[in-house]
Write a protein that binds this DNA or RNA. Sequence first.
DNA 1: TTTTATTAAATTGTTGACAATTTCATCACA
DNA 2: TGTGATGAAATTGTCAACAATTTAATAAAA
Lengths: 222, 222
Amino acid sequence: MRESSSTLSTSVFDQIKNEIIGGQLPQGSKIVETELAKKFNISRGPLREALHKLENINLIVKKPHSSTQVVTVDFELMKQVYQMRIVMEGYAARLAAENMTDKEIQGLKDLLNTHQDSIENAGGESYIQKEGDVDFHYYIFSKCGNELLANYLESKVYQLVRMCRIRTSTMKDRVALAYNEHSKIVDAISNRDGEFAEMLMRKHISGAWETIMKLQETQGDS
Amino acid sequence: MRESSSTLSTSVFDQIKNEIIGGQLPQGSKIVETELAKKFNISRGPLREALHKLENINLIVKKPHSSTQVVTVDFELMKQVYQMRIVMEGYAARLAAENMTDKEIQGLKDLLNTHQDSIENAGGESYIQKEGDVDFHYYIFSKCGNELLANYLESKVYQLVRMCRIRTSTMKDRVALAYNEHSKIVDAISNRDGEFAEMLMRKHISGAWETIMKLQETQGDS
DNA sequence: TTTTATTAAATTGTTGACAATTTCATCACA
DNA sequence: TGTGATGAAATTGTCAACAATTTAATAAAA
């Protein structure tokens, strides 16, 4: 996506991040600085900085003088992550209704239309909708007017969301449902009804979490 | 408070943090690694790690290859910080009402009583109540059952709150008012009414923000 | 056999020197 | 006088060696 790798540390940070999210570095696996440094052909200095950044976005956990591990996204953590989404994205929707410019709201409507098209054309192809879902949520919180909020969601919450293998996108039914819910949220924002937008967004994400929980029960842990 | 400084990096991190919050390192002042390293008698390695951590809790801002500055807490940032307090602490109160054990709720009631005593004894001495206010809020979000949420408030929000010089505690009237509002919040939590607790907490912090805004207007910027 | 010291190996924390980049002052030129 | 190029100083980024700490492996004792 972004090509900001002006320094070795940030470059390696991006690479390791992708490997963790992609699963090449498995959850819970032990991280040894010397090994990783050799792997990326850098010294331990910038590597340690990269690891620090990864720790700060909750992708690895460190104990001083001791072990460093890739985070394990268990059920409890995922529950907390979705609680954070519920409260933060809910409020972001409220702020968006209050602060977005008319032009930005029009952009949101356009985004929604492209998603509708892609759903119709792909006949419910889940992957596209999944990306669409992410785009939709990104659009709202990145333009809500509160950088602290947007930055936290992007840098800490969504990294962990990506690491959750079980996705609502695997449920075909939910694609259309999600679109309808998105549509109502856009209406509320367009009507400048912040309170309603917040409530709808909370319900929307709560619903996604309920779906994940059900899948978790039927599929077992992962 | 805490004496966790098992490593040079964390120790210096704590020291610099205190200097920033205390004002010895003024807002907006330029940070030079070599200077700071000399000041604390450490090399630049651990210092850089400390600076990275400080960047992560929003106390300094870095541009790659370029300037590093202590954050400037202007009105816009403070507004965003209080928005975050409103939404996150509101939700924490909801979770607390749902998740706190009976014993923890009793502890909250006890805490409230000690505050009442200190108000009566000190005759409205603001400092004590200010600390009491902080204790009250800390107690709730640290026992809400969501570590991510608690950690966020502690590490990213409250550091910035401390840097805001203008405090509601300077208004004597607000001390008693705050106590009453705290009391109602405790009742809602005790009654396991999460929705009400969230609403009350939102109102409580919104009120504090309104007070700050008024002071800001009369006193001018700072 | 189990438990507890003791010691060696592995790993992280720290340092000072070196390289790359940016910033700022100086000077030439229009 | 103002503007842009040039180079020196300051500052950050990177490296490889060293020190401190933890982990494990081994041996001694109960």
